[in-house]
Design a protein around this nucleic acid. Structure first.
Lengths: 225, 225
DNA sequence: TGTACATCAGTGAACGCGCGTTCACTGATGTAC
DNA sequence: TGTACATCAGTGAACGCGCGTTCACTGATGTAC
C-alpha cells in the first residue's frame, strides 16, 4: 500500500484531464442533471437514481463514486442552493434603509436573481414544502437565518420605539414569508414575460410597503396588546 | 341488454350492503388510504397505485373500477379538500369586522381547523408547491377565489379612502399568503403541542394586525405612488 | 314466493419494465525509481 | 527519459423487486317474470 502525493484540486475544473478533474466533472454533471430533471413538475423524491445518471451521461453504478445515494445528493443540492443565495443576500443587505425606491429596487433585484437561478429556487421551494425531513429542516434553518438577519436590520428602523425582539422576529418572518410566496409566483411564470414579471415586482413591493407602513405604527401608540 | 331501475344512492353509505354501497365504501377507502400515506413526508406523486390499493385493502386492479388512474384520484382529492375548506370559510366570513379580538379569534379557529383536517391541508399545500400542473392550477384557482372574497370584505374597511380594487386584491393576497405560510407551520408541528400551537396563533394574529395597521394608513395621506 | 338470469365490484394471475444495488472489470492517469 | 506498477472513475452485466395495466374469472346483489 503506497501513499502518493496528489495534485492540489484545480480551480478551473472543466477542461482538465486527470482523475480529479474527471471526478468533479461527473459530480457536477450529476448535480446539473438532477436540477434539470426537476424543471417541470417533478419532485426531487420522484427522481430515480438511474434517470439522473442517464441524464448525466454515466452508467448507474458510477453514481456511487460520488454520493452514498439520492439522499446525499439532495443534501448537496440544499447546500449549493443556499451557498449562492446567502452570497446574494449579503450583497443586497449592503444597501441602505428601506425607503420606497429601495424597496421596489430590492424586490426587483431579488426577482431577477430568482429568474437567473431558477433551478435552485425551484428545488428549494419544493423541498421546503414537500421534501424529505432532513432537507426540509435544512431549508427551514436557512430561512430562520435570513429572518434573524432581517430582524437585526429592522431594529434600526424602530429604534425610537419599544419594539421587543420577538416582535422584530415576527415582522421579519412576515417579510420573508412574503418573499417565499413571491418566489413561488415567479417560478410559476412562463419564461420571457417581462411585463408579468414587472407586475409581480410591483405587487410584491407594494406588499412590503404596506408591511412597513404597519411597522411605522407598531407600538407607536400606547395601545399595546 | 336489459335496463334495470337502480336503487337511489343511500345517504348513510358505510353500513350498507349492495353494489352501490360497496362501491362507495371502496372508493372512500382509496381516498383515505392516499391521504394517510401522505401523512409523513411523501408527495402524492410518489405514491404508487399498488400501495394505495394495498392500504385500502383491495387488489390493484380494483382501483380502475373507481378512477382512471392516479391523476384522477388526485383531482378528486383537490375537490374534497376544498369542498370542506370553502364551507369553513363561509362560516368564518359570517363574522363581523376585524377588530383585535376578532383577528386573534379567527386565526385560532383557522389553525384548529387545519389541525382537524390535517390530511387535506397537507395534501393541498404539497400539491400547491410541487404537484402536477393540473392540481397546482386547481389549487391556485381556489386560493384566487378566497383572495377575491377577502378583497370584497376589505372594501368595507377602507370605504372612506380611495383604494383601488387592484390594491384590495394585493392586500388580500398578502393576508392569504400569510395564512398559507401559517398553515405550513401548523402542519410542521408535532401533534399534541398546545403551547406551541398557541404561539403560532399569537404570531399569526400579530402579523395580521400589523398588516391591518398598514391598511389603515394606505392612501390615507396624499403620498400615493 | 321462487327461479333464471343480468350486473358488476372485486379477484388473482400474468406481462414486460425500470428500479437500486453489487461486482469484477477496464483503461487512462499518475507515481516510483 | 523509460518502465513497471498503483490508483480509481467509469463500465456492463446481473440480481431480485415493485411497478402499472390487462384479462378472464367469481360470486354476491338485484331484477324480471
Amino acid at each position: 500500500m503506497a501513499v502518493y502525493k496528489r495534485k492540489g484540486k484545480e480551480d478551473a475544473e472543466s477542461e482538465e484531464s486527470g482523475h480529479d478533474a474527471r471526478r468533479s466533472r461527473t459530480r457536477q454533471a450529476l448535480i446539473e442533471a438532477a436540477l434539470d430533471l426537476m424543471s417541470e413538475d417533478r419532485t426531487f423524491s420522484s427522481l430515480s437514481l438511474r434517470e439522473v445518471t442517464k441524464a448525466a451521461g454515466v452508467v448507474p453504478a458510477a453514481f456511487y463514486r460520488h454520493f452514498r445515494g439520492m439522499d446525499s445528493l439532495g443534501l448537496e443540492l440544499v447546500d449549493e442552493s443556499f451557498r449562492t443565495l446567502r452570497a446574494q443576500m449579503r450583497e443586497v443587505r449592503a444597501n441602505p434603509l428601506p425607503a420606497e425606491q429601495i424597496i421596489h429596487g430590492s424586490v426587483g433585484l431579488y426577482v431577477r436573481y430568482v429568474r437567473e437561478q431558477e433551478r435552485y429556487f425551484r428545488f428549494a421551494i419544493r423541498e421546503l414544502f414537500s421534501g424529505a425531513a432532513s432537507n426540509k429542516l435544512a431549508i427551514r434553518n436557512e430561512l430562520r437565518f435570513f429572518i434573524s438577519e432581517l430582524a437585526t436590520d429592522l431594529a434600526l428602523l424602530v429604534r425610537d420605539r419599544p419594539v421587543t425582539s420577538s416582535d422584530l422576529q415576527m415582522i421579519a418572518q412576515l417579510v420573508v414569508n412574503s418573499m417565499v410566496m413571491l418566489t413561488e409566483q415567479v417560478l410559476e411564470l412562463p419564461p420571457e414575460r417581462p411585463e408579468e414579471e414587472e407586475l409581480l415586482i410591483d405587487t410584491g413591493a407594494k406588499q412590503l410597503r404596506l408591511i412597513f407602513l404597519g411597522v411605522s405604527l407598531w407600538n407607536a401608540k400606547p395601545g399595546k396588546k
